[in-house]
């Protein structure tokens, strides 16, 4: 067991960012922005900016035009919201919604229509930790390539999580099946979160930023019923009946 590796943490953090939400017509809005930049050039200097394009509902080409226009003005764009994930570079991929729908598909992309506006959990909003913990029940197996993100609380899966699938939960993760993919529990900084599964064959486990990969697991645990939890700063995976 390497202790140096244990000290490397993956943390979720909330911080403030400007959200720029252009409304149509875009050219007029851009002129307003330019006027503002002219007078207060330091206003956006070095601050992260999120671009919310839901009101503009642009096409793919328009999205790229808008992103280029914003970036050419020296703004530090960190993410784009309100458009199809495939329309912008992965670096600017839209922020995940709450909860993200299972499956990455948006049927509208075949027609190049923008997705409808939806409520989102963005970096600009702080999660309300005082609310009672929510939970999400998934009655289907999670297939390879699917990603389920539920920062509000616990996730229970009746079925397996395939290799190449991932679950990120603000609370604990319960899997009544095999876990062959990746599981991130306590993503909001909850060190008490745990991960349970009926058959353990995971690629990666993370609790509150502390992680272990497949190479770190005791081979004897493979196929066993296990729980993973944090004991101070050590991620323990143990047989659990």
């Amino acid at each position: 067991m390497s202790t140096s590796r244990m000290s490397l943490r993956l943390l979720g953090r909330s911080y403030l960012a400007f959200v720029l939400a252009p409304d149509p017509p875009f050219d007029e809005w851009l002129a307003e922005l330019d006027a503002r930049l002219l007078h207060q050039s330091a206003f956006f200097s070095n601050r992260p900016v999120i671009l919310d394009l839901a009101a503009l509902s642009p096409t793919m080409a328009e999205t790229q035009h808008v992103v280029a226009a914003i970036e050419s003005r020296g703004l530090r764009l960190v993410a784009v919201e309100g458009v199809n994930a495939d329309w912008v570079s992965p670096r600017l991929a839209p922020l995940p919604g709450t909860p993200m729908p299972i499956g990455m598909f948006n049927p509208r992309e075949l027609d190049n229509k923008p997705p409808p506006r939806q409520s989102r959990f963005s970096l600009a909003e702080k999660p309300d930790l005082n609310k009672p913990a929510a939970s999400l029940l998934v009655e289907e197996p999670l297939r390879s390539g699917q990603s389920l993100i539920f920062p509000q609380g616990d996730v229970t899966v009746i079925g397996s999580v395939a290799s190449g699938a991932e679950i990120a939960a603000g609370g604990s993760i319960h899997i009544y099946g095999a876990l062959r993919g990746r599981a991130f529990a306590g993503t909001n900084g909850n060190a008490k979160a745990r991960i349970f599964c009926n058959r353990f064959d995971a690629e990666l486990l993370v609790i509150d930023g502390l992680y272990k990969t497949a190479d770190d697991f005791d081979p004897a645990l493979r196929g066993a019923q296990v729980q993973a939890r944090l004991d101070r700063d050590v991620l323990n995976v143990e047989v659990f009946h």
Binding site: G103, M104, R143
Partner: peptide, 10 residues
């Protein structure tokens, strides 16, 4: 497995 996920969504 990936294709099955797509069959369930696309």
């Amino acid at each position: 497995d990936r294709i099955i996920g797509l069959l369930d969504s696309k």
